[in-house]
Design a binder for these strands. Structure first.
Lengths: 201, 201, 201, 201
DNA sequence: CATGAATGAGGGTTCATTCAT
DNA sequence: TATGAATGAACCCTCATTCAT
């Protein structure tokens, strides 16, 4: 087996067991047994347990970052609100199509060690900042009502995380139409955000 | 020291170290050292590590349950929407006034073991169900727009969890007016939920 | 068993196996098996393998330091040369009466890790410096011939170390009269080998 | 690269890393990385780690053996004492000109395994026996005073080992005139330290 | 009630050696 | 000859739990 394949295989198996048992309950034995590989082999491809874990999540971090497009103004581009919605849609779709890694991120990522906690916080903060920029743009253009963009960006993120998490835990959701879920989330968020003379205080 | 006091003291110290380091990184030594108590003494009051952890969270589960009031109809009661809002307000206030336990719940509760994961899921599902009932009531009364109440209840829970979590992580938030945060969350949620001829699709 | 006894027991067994197999070939299992104690027990008394090793040698370092008396001048004291000889005699006697630890020091002390190598060098250098002082005093008083005191102090130390080491390796030496050995070493150092009529430059 | 060259290259690199880190702290990786050679290649030239180590020292053993000349009597030869001195001089010069291997021998040779410890002891004992023969000859010829030749031969070896070791550890010695060191050692051994007027019995 | 010494299973990691290519 | 991926025994250390005092 060529090196890249073996590494991918180990990474894949690590991903699965990590998301089943969490970081601390997962042992190297779990990973290598699932991979049918000797103990030492694991350490040919990864420095240590912590590093595989980080690799698994780094992949997701990158993918999430990639599917969020900075909002583009001007003709030829969709409306900023639609672009924001598309970003939300992409992220949800990405998360739901990677159930194991997403579960890992949402349930087992904190508590690995202080450094990784910090890394996680930074990741979420970066996402929140990008969201805030979009919100501020929307407000400036009169498309969104005024609000505390910082808080609201966490509201949006929380909405996405929780809905996705519930889909992953709940077998009855699996296979349900993603678009339906996304629309519901978007409606929840957007009807609260769109400027309107008839909102309430 | 009388039995109940000692147990409370251990529980309190356990709460603090658990929330600082998470379940797996916390050792019995951490708890007994902080408590100035011998190793064996710990096991006089708790069956095992897992049980203290559960006790800590059970307290929070109970408190959260207690501050959610079932919506009452009829004269002499506030409007159902205000009652819903009050519930949200109470929960947020409770969580923010128990930062350590809340951090424990939000960041370190999953991954202890499969049974406890299940218990957590059930707790969240029960909350979601109570929320759903309220939402269905609001819709039936024409106060809220039609929506997938299951999804929306997770949206609301996610909003609360994430905003609270961000407050706990972010020092700049600490001391900020809780009401301000609560209002922002309520506005985010309610303007999206109130029936309105002028909402967007 | 009281704490001090258990620690002494472990230290004693560690001393023996270390001197038999050297630091790297000795495993914690060797020490605990010899002690009839569980693995964890070892770590109740010592931080790690390295620390026991260091404890064993620290004891010897201290004893060696203690049996070297700074040379005293004036009436009521033996002649400086006799004091120097007494120091040599004491050290040799000490080393021969602690064969295991001495073997450990002479054969297995280097190579544990860079920090310990440095500590060892410092120990030997301190000894050499004390020897040098004595030599310089002897020269100043006209009792000893002029020489490079630094080199000569290592000559003396080497003489002692090698003779002691050979005694420890060689079963036929065991039990031989220590005084005989000491005298031979002292004669070697003080008179040299050349027959007096034929002294050279 | 021809076989002999490759083997020499590996041996040379092994020598360097062994003397830097000692036997146990040196890994095969250290040797092959330094040599730019694959892991398997190492085992084409040496049976195992232990064997390389032995090869490195065997070379030194041979060189040491070679530079000690059996004392020749009769006209046309230098005086036996000068021949003995020349042997000492040659050995010291050899050791100081091979600092790495010498360090390896003096600090890291014991403790590899019981068999090698035995081999080392035999090597030193053989040297001691050759020294003893010379000493006995010198005594028989009235050139040297009577003494316990066994002990004295270890005194001489210890003197040489320790002085050489101190030169290798101590940077200030490096580059110092070898002859100066050798003379000091020879003087120590032949004349001792006591000023001639006050020789003792 | 309280203590804390003792336990030992279990986890992460290293590394000399092998062998198919 | 040369390679380097694979192996797996062995090692150090941790820590939840027990129990004699």
């Amino acid at each position: 087996m060529i090196k890249a394949e073996r590494k991918a295989q180990l990474l894949e198996n690590a991903r699965v067991v990590f998301s089943n048992k969490g970081y601390h309950k997962t042992s190297i034995s779990d990973i290598i047994n699932k991979s049918g590989v000797a103990r030492g082999t694991f350490y040919l491809y990864f420095e240590n347990k912590r590093q595989v874990f980080e690799s698994v999540l780094d992949e997701l971090f990158r993918d999430i970052g990639d599917c969020i497009k900075t909002i583009q103004l001007g003709k030829g581009h969709a409306s900023p609100i639609d672009q924001l919605r598309n970003n939300v849609r992409s992220v949800i779709a990405l998360l739901l199509s990677n159930p194991e890694t997403t579960d890992l991120l949402l349930k087992h990522a904190f508590g690995v060690d202080p450094e990784f906690d910090e890394k996680l916080n930074q990741f979420y903060n970066r996402l929140a900042e990008r969201l805030e920029s979009s919100l501020q743009l929307g407000i400036a253009m009169g498309l969104l009502r005024k609000c505390d963009t910082q808080i609201v960006s966490f509201c949006i993120m929380g909405t996405i995380k929780e809905v996705v998490a519930s889909c992953l835990s709940d077998v009855q959701y699996r296979g349900k139409d993603i678009d339906l879920i996304v629309d519901e989330v978007l409606n929840f968020g957007s009807r609260g955000l769109i400027t309107s003379e008839y909102g309430n205080t």
